[in-house]
């Protein structure tokens, strides 16, 4: 057995700081002390392995996975597809990707959401899939609606899909949000703007992908996800390539 390689040190300049006063809830939920930096041991270098016995084939189709037979949710039909890569631009295969979102009216199917927009009886709002050998994944869903939230009295979330990814080691675990190209709410959202780096925000914005649409049926957006890369040990004998 070979020990998995260490991960690259995380570049904290692209991540939102814990204390982000524009996003008020972060104020009392942000640790004050510096994190202690650890060399990765096997518990950080490995992580759970998921297979096709964990999920079902239709779990990635939000148009059908909660709809009554013969019906479908209201809203703009979209395909959200992309690849999970690492910082070395290598695919991350066989990893679990889970998503959740509001419906087309901006309402979540959650017992704590009381927004006045209606629940869609044919929309659950969650999906999951496992990337293929090239790191590729795809979901079919409706484009989520924008919705108001209490932060300042007049804050609106841009349309977004929450995305959870594992990778091959627990230190790669990531939850983020996917936004949509051209949404005027992106630059004024306090949660988006917790991210200090404009390029990192661009990287969270899915692009219209006309080549992946189904003509006369479903429009498509492309969203690639990049997880931390692993170091290569350049000056040690290795049986296989890096």
């Amino acid at each position: 057995m070979t020990t998995p390689e260490q991960f690259y040190q995380r570049d904290w300049s692209i991540h939102p700081p814990a204390y982000s006063p524009g996003y008020k809830t972060s104020v009392a939920r942000s640790p004050s002390y510096s994190k202690i930096s650890l060399d990765n041991s096997v518990g950080e270098l490995t992580g759970p392995v998921f297979g096709h016995s964990d999920i079902d084939a239709g779990d990635n189709d939000l148009l059908t996975n909660f709809a009554q037979p013969g019906q479908s949710p209201i809203g703009e039909r979209i395909i959200l597809h992309g690849r999970v890569l690492d910082e070395n631009a290598r695919p991350v295969p066989n990893t679990l990707v889970e998503i959740w979102q509001a419906n087309a009216g901006g309402r979540y199917r959650h017992k704590k959401d009381t927004y006045l927009a209606p629940i869609d009886p044919n929309f659950g709002g969650c999906g999951r899939t496992i990337t293929d050998e090239t790191g590729a994944f795809a979901f079919r869903t409706v484009k989520p609606g924008a919705y108001p939230w209490r932060n300042y009295v007049n804050n609106w979330r841009p349309a977004h899909i929450h995305v959870s990814v594992f990778g091959s080691g627990f230190a790669q675990r990531l939850i983020t949000q996917c936004y949509f190209q051209g949404d005027p709410l992106i630059p004024i959202c306090p949660i988006v703007q917790t991210i200090p780096n404009p390029d990192a925000i661009e990287q969270l914005t899915a692009t219209l992908d006309l080549n992946a649409t189904i003509p006369l049926d479903t429009v498509a957006y492309k969203f690639d996800i990049v997880l931390r890369g692993r170091r290569s040990t350049l000056f040690e004998n290795r049986l296989e390539g890096n």
């Binding site: 939850i175 991210i195 997880l227």
Partner: peptide, 9 residues
């Protein structure tokens, strides 16, 4: 190198 995707709450 690619940049890691930024985290969001």
């Amino acid at each position: 190198y690619l940049k890691e995707t930024a985290s969001q709450t």
